[in-house]
Amino acid sequence: MITAMTSLTILGAILGLILGVAARVFRVEGNALVGELLDILPGSQCGQCGFPGCAGAAQALADGSAPVTLCPPGGRAVAIALAARLGVEADVSGVKDAVPMIAEVREELCIGCTRCFKVCPTDAIMGAAQQIHAVFREACTACGKCEAVCPTESVTLVPVSVTLHGWYWPKPV
């Protein structure tokens, strides 16, 4: 009886000591995680996730208060990368359902007010005052800021059209 109690107590003490030492030696800087998550996020500060910019989103992800599927412009790829970094299982099937979008300028409505390209976080809109603006497709993250500020509803988000390059077989049913 005494032997059992003593040995268990000693065992507990030793293990506790090891854990305590390990916690100090292998301590991970909390900020490092936030930084890494920030690297994964698009960085366009669009605010669609409901957090103040990508840094806020990274903070929320790090303390577990936000799901990895929070970033609409990042889409599936970002959700998977975040899940991998955080070591959590993510149901990314819902993310994929959001059709990839892209901003498009309807030339007949554009008045060349330059508001959209002033707010574009990735400089994806080209143009100058009194000139019709155009979207540089490769840079557009479909954050929607331009759509929000356009006075004539000339800039809208439209689904990305599928090309022969991007097409692939749908999942078998």
Binding site: P42, G74, A77, T122, D123, A139, C140
Partner: peptide, 16 residues
């Protein structure tokens, strides 16, 4: 492709 685009747009955003 999404990842590559993300990297590119992220660079643009940082530059901006």
């Amino acid at each position: 492709r999404g990842k590559l685009k993300l990297e590119a747009t992220k660079k643009l955003a940082d530059e901006r």
